[in-house]
Nucleic acid binder design. Structure first.
Ligand SMILES: [Zn+2]
Ligand SMILES: [Zn+2]
Ligand SMILES: [Zn+2]
Ligand SMILES: [Zn+2]
Lengths: 159, 159
DNA sequence: TGGCTATTGATATGTTATAACATACAAGGT
DNA sequence: ACCTTGTATGTTATAACATATCAATAGCCA
């Protein structure tokens, strides 16, 4: 499970396989991938960046798929709950999951220059955080792990 | 550097020593701990919870220390930049630093029941996140590490 | 078919954060 | 004392992010 997003790759395939995986999951788990939800996921999959809810809404609305905030937030809520997308807390923005199907605790590498985001994974119950929680008697239910900095390309450009 | 916040302790001392440490830092680094900034820090120190900017603003405003959003945001911006407070991204809220003076990468344990927050520390460049960044060629400048779940007291109460 | 539930449509509102511009005030040089 | 420069505040307005509510509709199953 290595971090994509910064490297060159067949991006059309990201979109296709992401959608296909989501469809399969929905069939298996009896979830309804309605037109708005499906298109929202496709839009998120179409870039390795986090989109704000209102960015997403603008695109949906261009296509006549709704024009009010709840439309975007409901779609995002569904996608996040289903595990098809994640919220990037440090940006208040949303990103298609890059490891759709795998059960995982996501972590993000966020470039402050080009705003691209790569998803990787953590093992929150291990490591220092897990140890601190253990010591404190704290029960971890969810973790937010996000690194901000410079992606390889922007790092090179800065030098 | 163990996580406080969930355990019983002499809290008046947290406030006193926090303020004293901030004052010392300001002298040493030629920063200006103005009345609004000082009082904002004192308010944050007075609880081991994260306060929203508007919560803080409400308290400041009760005391005639300003009534418009920028007042709170400027004070918070100063405190965060100086390292006297942290933003908890998952809550969009702010918390006094519990390890004032030490250079550290903060991490938080956030109780979803009582909303208390304990600060601990991470070593972001080590561990899985650091390894993923290394592999991707990503330069980490700042990390957000936050765990949500149940503190010991609320865990016991739930059982 | 009828009743149930999930989803959508629509309006309004709540919450968090910043832009923009004007003013006050402290520090340092002349 | 006077000016200059930079930092901090005051003030208004607005951008950006998120949810509450309620009515209408579509899919599902007994
Ligand atoms: Zn994922
Ligand atoms: Zn970049
Ligand atoms: Zn701290
Ligand atoms: Zn608790």
């Amino acid at each position: 499970m290595t971090a994509l997003g910064f490297t060159q790759h067949d991006h059309a395939k990201c979109v296709r396989s992401g959608l296909a995986a989501a469809e399969a999951q929905c069939r298996a788990r009896k979830l309804r991938l309605t037109p708005v939800r499906r298109r929202a996921l496709e839009i998120l999959l179409s870039e390795h960046r986090a989109l704000g809810a209102y960015d997403l809404l603008a695109r949906l609305s261009e296509e006549g798929l709704g024009s009010q905030p709840p439309v975007a937030y409901r779609a995002l809520d569904f996608l996040v709950k289903a595990g098809f997308a994640h919220k990037v807390e440090a940006l208040n923005a949303y990103l298609a999951c890059a490891h759709l199907g795998d059960d995982h605790a996501p972590a993000f590498l966020i470039c402050r220059a080009c705003r691209s985001v790569a998803e990787t994974a953590t093992t929150p119950r291990q490591g220092r955080l897990g140890a601190a929680a253990e010591e404190a008697g704290f029960l971890i239910e969810r973790t937010v792990v996000e690194a901000q900095g410079l992606c390889p390309a922007c790092r090179k450009a800065a030098a």
